[in-house]
């Protein structure tokens, strides 16, 4: 069993604090979901775990089986078993999907060892078929000209082949139609095992119709404010997030108005009132 621990994580972007003390523990064999309104820091958490250059960890720690993740470069995090299915995966022009995935698999092997091409093609074909992806996909450039749905499936395809210990799925359901949502959901579900755990970030409960999750966390303003089981999903679906704020006594910050408000004066009205009118020919009147 592996364990991913996040303790008192504080993260800033360009000097602004987004995450304000996140605590989370995920074991392999567990599926966790983080829900929350827009702009509460869900994607920041996902990207920070993977080591995105934009996010600065100001406090706290992330550990994978006791090893300090924050000290690892991005590629090492991946090779140690972390995976991020991105909301907006990049396009890599001139590099075929098959070559890219093969290189990523090769990067996991000890030096001098090579993957068997035959075995790789078989694995790729099987995983693509399970995701009902187009057969020309391996020969197309990475994400170039892919539809929103194809990109998301391509993320799941990589996850299936690279077999991480922990995957973070950052809004993998956005841009998916009903059928694609089911296919993606079923594929993620089928990976659940004692060697694999996931952190699923979503706005909607829809994807969770296909994925059996163990824990649900609600994130508001950079903090996990409530954790529970599946029953939370139905409650959020029915009532939104406001009841949680009420329950916890959280209020949206009021907008501060600095100084007095000036209503201003109307220049046109002044002109008319003073008898100048608005027409330039009226000067002699």
């Amino acid at each position: 069993m592996s364990i991913l621990q996040i303790r008192n994580l504080h993260v800033s972007v360009e000097g602004k604090e987004i995450l304000k003390g996140i605590n989370l523990e995920i074991k392999t064999g567990e599926f966790h979901v983080i829900m929350g309104p827009n702009g509460t820091g869900k994607s920041t958490l996902a990207s920070t775990v993977m080591g995105h250059y934009k996010y600065e960890v100001t406090k706290g720690e992330i550990a994978l089986d006791g090893e300090n993740v924050l000290a690892m470069p991005v590629d090492e995090r991946s090779r140690k078993g972390l995976f991020l299915a991105m909301q907006y995966p990049s396009e890599i022009s001139g590099v075929t999907n098959a070559d890219f995935i093969k290189t990523a698999l090769q990067a996991r092997l000890p030096e001098g060892e090579h993957i068997s091409l035959f075995k790789f093609i078989k694995t790729l074909d099987k995983a693509s078929a399970e995701l009902k992806m187009h057969s020309d996909l391996p020969h197309r450039y990475v994400n170039v000209g892919f539809s929103g749905g194809e990109r998301k499936r391509n993320e799941i395809l990589q996850m299936k082949i690279l077999k991480p210990k922990f995957a973070i799925l950052d809004e993998i359901d956005s841009g998916l139609d009903v059928d694609a949502l089911r296919i993606v959901g079923e594929n993620v579900s089928s990976m659940k095992s004692s060697d694999f755990g996931a952190l699923i970030i979503t706005h909607y409960e829809r994807l969770l119709d296909y994925i059996d999750v163990d824990y649900v966390h609600v994130m508001l303003d950079g903090q996990i404010v409530k954790s529970g089981g599946k029953e939370l999903i139905a409650q959020i679906d029915e009532k939104g997030y406001d009841w949680i704020k009420d329950e916890l006594g959280l209020f949206d910050e009021p907008i501060n108005v600095i100084g007095k408000v000036s209503v201003g004066t109307c220049a046109v009205k002044n002109m008319i009132d003073s008898g100048n009118g608005t027409n330039g020919n009226n000067n002699n009147r």
């Binding site: 993977m50 080591g51 995105h52 250059y53 470069p73 991005v74 590629d75 995090r77 991946s78 090779r79 995976f83 991020l84 991105m86 995966p89 990049s90 396009e91 890599i92 890219f100 995935i101 290189t103 990523a104 990067a107 996991r108 990589q158 690279l162």
Partner: peptide, 11 residues
């Protein structure tokens, strides 16, 4: 693009 590739384990 670098982050994307490195997040898949490429140095």
């Amino acid at each position: 693009e670098m982050f994307y590739l490195m997040s898949r384990g490429l140095s």
